[in-house]
């Protein structure tokens, strides 16, 4: 019963993150929306791990957090490099790969 509530919450947060990625044009807000989606997935993994009484799922979430930290460092470095190149953070102005 309660497990479904956690999964519904996870789905709602994931949807909010997806909407953020698709609608916003600021690169940092898109990055934060991706963090929202990662956290929603973490929440559903922890839900299953906790309701099946297994610490292995939580170890997996630990690895996801470590990869998210690495992704944060690289993603923000890319944002800084793009800003230095094009003087903008808005992805509508970034059309380097078009044509």
């Amino acid at each position: 019963m309660l497990q479904e509530f956690y999964l519904i919450l996870s789905a709602i947060i994931f949807t909010i993150g997806t909407v953020g990625v698709l609608t916003r044009s600021n690169a940092i807000v898109i990055f934060m929306s991706i963090e929202l989606m990662l956290n929603a997935v973490n929440l559903s993994i922890i839900t299953f791990a906790s309701f099946s009484n297994d610490p292995v799922g939580q170890v997996f979430v630990f690895f996801v957090m470590a990869v998210a930290a690495a992704e944060a460092a690289i993603g923000l470095a890319i944002v800084i490099a793009l800003y230095r190149l094009k003087k903008t953070m808005f992805i509508d102005n970034l059309k380097l790969l078009r044509n």
Binding site: A69, A70, E71, A73, I74, L76, A77, I80, A81
Partner: peptide, 13 residues
């Protein structure tokens, strides 16, 4: 992975 991420972030920025 974290070590390579540190190096990558420094190289990119």
């Amino acid at each position: 992975l974290l070590l390579s991420a540190i190096i990558g972030a420094v190289m990119l920025s």
